[in-house]
Simulated scan of single mutants.
Amino acid sequence: MALPPRPGDQLASATSATRVIVIRAPADTAAPIECGGVPMIPAQGAPAAPTDDEPSGTLIGKRYVDATDSLELLCTASGAGDLTYGGQPLQIKAPKALPASD
C-alpha cells in the first residue's frame, strides 16, 4: 500500500526528467502520483534524470492541481509525460488575480 504524499516530499519520474515537490496533499488518501503512467519515486533515491528529446509534458515552475484542488505539486524540472493523481490528470493551476493598485 502506498503512503499518502506529504507537503515537502520531492518526487522524480522514473522514465523522464520530471521532478516535483508536493505543496499540498490530502491527508486521508494514498492514491499514486504518476508521470507518464508510471508511479513517481522519491527524488532522493532516484537515478540521474534521463534527458528528454520529446516535447515536455510538464513545465518547470508551474503548479499542478487535481480536480478537487486537494493536491498541489510544483514542477522543479520539466520532462516528458503528463502528471496524474489516482488515475486523474492534473491541470496547471491558474494564477491568482491581483487587486488593482490605483
Score class of each variant (00 low, 15 high):
residue 2 A to P: 15
residue 3 L to H: 07
residue 3 L to N: 09
residue 3 L to Q: 11
residue 6 R to Q: 15
residue 8 G to I: 10
residue 9 D to T: 00
residue 10 Q to R: 15
residue 12 A to N: 05
residue 12 A to F: 08
residue 12 A to W: 05
residue 13 S to H: 09
residue 14 A to I: 04
residue 15 T to W: 02
residue 16 S to E: 04
residue 16 S to T: 11
residue 17 A to H: 03
residue 18 T to M: 11
residue 18 T to G: 07
residue 19 R to F: 02
residue 19 R to K: 15
residue 22 V to M: 03
residue 23 I to Q: 04
residue 23 I to F: 00
residue 24 R to F: 01
residue 25 A to S: 15
residue 26 P to W: 04
residue 26 P to D: 14
residue 27 A to S: 15
residue 28 D to Y: 10
residue 29 T to D: 07
residue 29 T to F: 06
residue 31 A to F: 15
residue 32 P to K: 01
residue 34 E to V: 00
residue 34 E to M: 11
residue 34 E to I: 00
residue 36 G to K: 00
residue 37 G to A: 08
residue 37 G to L: 01
residue 38 V to M: 12
residue 38 V to P: 00
residue 38 V to D: 10
residue 39 P to A: 03
residue 39 P to F: 05
residue 40 M to W: 04
residue 42 P to Y: 06
residue 42 P to N: 08
residue 44 Q to R: 14
residue 44 Q to N: 06
residue 45 G to E: 03
residue 45 G to D: 12
residue 47 P to G: 13
residue 48 A to F: 08
residue 48 A to G: 10
residue 49 A to W: 13
residue 50 P to N: 08
residue 53 D to V: 05
residue 54 E to W: 08
residue 55 P to K: 05
residue 57 G to A: 08
residue 58 T to E: 07
residue 59 L to G: 01
residue 59 L to R: 12
residue 59 L to Q: 06
residue 61 G to V: 07
residue 61 G to E: 08
residue 61 G to F: 12
residue 62 K to F: 09
residue 62 K to C: 11
residue 63 R to S: 13
residue 64 Y to H: 11
residue 64 Y to I: 03
residue 68 T to W: 09
residue 69 D to Q: 14
residue 69 D to S: 15
residue 72 E to I: 10
residue 72 E to H: 02
residue 74 L to A: 05
residue 74 L to F: 11
residue 74 L to I: 00
residue 75 C to N: 12
residue 76 T to Q: 12
residue 77 A to Y: 05
residue 77 A to G: 01
residue 79 G to S: 07
residue 79 G to M: 10
residue 79 G to Q: 04
residue 80 A to D: 10
residue 81 G to R: 04
residue 83 L to M: 05
residue 84 T to C: 05
residue 85 Y to K: 08
residue 85 Y to Q: 08
residue 85 Y to A: 08
residue 86 G to M: 08
residue 86 G to F: 10
residue 87 G to S: 02
residue 87 G to P: 12
residue 88 Q to L: 14
residue 89 P to S: 09
residue 89 P to W: 10
residue 91 Q to F: 13
residue 95 P to K: 11
residue 99 P to I: 06
residue 99 P to Y: 09
residue 100 A to Q: 13
residue 101 S to C: 05
residue 101 S to V: 14
residue 101 S to A: 14
